[in-house]
Design a binder for these strands. Structure first.
Lengths: 205, 205
DNA sequence: GTCTATACGCCGATAGAC
DNA sequence: GTCTATCGGCGTATAGAC
């Protein structure tokens, strides 16, 4: 009964695959548009245009403009935490300098993809309570991990580990994304070296 | 001839004084509105309302919304450079640690006034070419001064002074404003101490 | 499921009365 | 010089044809 087979698997289920692909196209387009024009001036019409679809179709995949940004932010956060988790499960280097280098490199790599998108995400994201909460939770988790790492490492001499952890996280996150997003971007390798040197000397001082 | 005197100085020149006062009221209102809602959502109607005047009157003092933001940014930049210039004309301390402390304290004090306004200015300001250019010039000047200072100081051992200067400026500027603008702001004194410690150990390493 | 056309609201800016 | 009332435009989101 070929007719039955056709009803059960109509054209090898193209629906969800194509749909997810279109969502991805929209997200990619939005990333570029937001990065170029900022959130406010990055209109849905522009996004649709760049994605090669009409504005009407766009609204079949996302309920509104904010949802697009939220998804973009969520994916970035998830990528970051996944990468961090992967590093944390494996064995870390012994020397604090090498440990710090691992994390600095993580931050640099995360920002090398598209510094301008990241800048927009961090700076222009509409500060809805829910998004702020989510970002805050991730940040607090990172600070917590950093503090534990500082307190558990024999080379570390810094006294106020609470303040130190906040300072380290803020420095890495912000300086990396700022220096890489500048019109004349700093060399990533040099940035990593100097940043690691600064942090190492700080926490072992 | 009393009539002549009245024509020359009508009611002890109230015009410019009151006008400047109103301009200031508008700027203050705008600072609060922008800080609370961001630039895009900080509407001119809200600004006028908070300033206690009508929307029509507001447009007698500023040609458009962008001009209000530009003035806000200009004043902040001018304040900062003036404070820096004042410090640079006087004698600087001998030890590099104390020199760094002077500049870190400058940054902290500049941000203590209204961290949220500053955050908005830096982050959400519409990046018009002219404003970007002005900010960039100030930043480059600071980096230049810092680099010269690093190269001229006997205690400093860091090799790549170009990268180091950029890193120092970015770190101070961004970490200070971020950590002070957080929902649970860091203690300003501790921030200063730890930041100075970090930078000192870095450049003398 | 994709399109075009358009409704709707909001905001910056202006006109014109007082 | 300050106000109220309103214009013009843009941008999100929807309706409805195909």
């Amino acid at each position: 009964m070929p007719s039955d087979q056709r009803r059960i698997q109509p054209r090898k289920q193209p629906r969800q695959v194509r749909a997810e692909l279109t969502r991805q196209r929209i997200l990619t387009a939005a990333a570029h548009v937001f990065a170029d024009h900022g959130y406010a001036a990055g209109t849905t019409n522009r996004i649709a245009e760049r994605a090669g679809i009409s504005i009407g179709s766009l609204y079949q995949y996302f309920p509104n403009k904010d949802a697009i940004l939220a998804e973009l932010l969520t994916r970035h956060l998830d990528d970051g935490t996944a990468a961090a988790a992967k590093v944390l499960t494996g064995p870390l280097p012994d020397s604090i300098e090498d440990v710090l280098r691992v994390f600095v490199r993580l931050a640099v790599e995360a920002h090398l993809d598209d510094p301008h998108l990241l800048r927009m995400l961090i700076e222009q994201a509409p500060r809805s309570d829910e998004l702020l909460e989510r970002v805050g939770r991730v940040k607090r988790a990172m600070v917590g991990h950093t503090r534990a790492l500082l307190e558990g490492h024999p080379e570390v001499r810094v006294a106020d580990t609470a303040t130190a952890a906040r300072l380290v996280i803020a420095t890495v996150e912000l300086a990396v994304h700022d220096l890489l997003a500048e019109p004349d971007p700093i060399d990533a390798r040099r940035l990593e070296d100097e940043m690691v040197a600064m942090l190492t000397r700080y926490v072992t001082g």
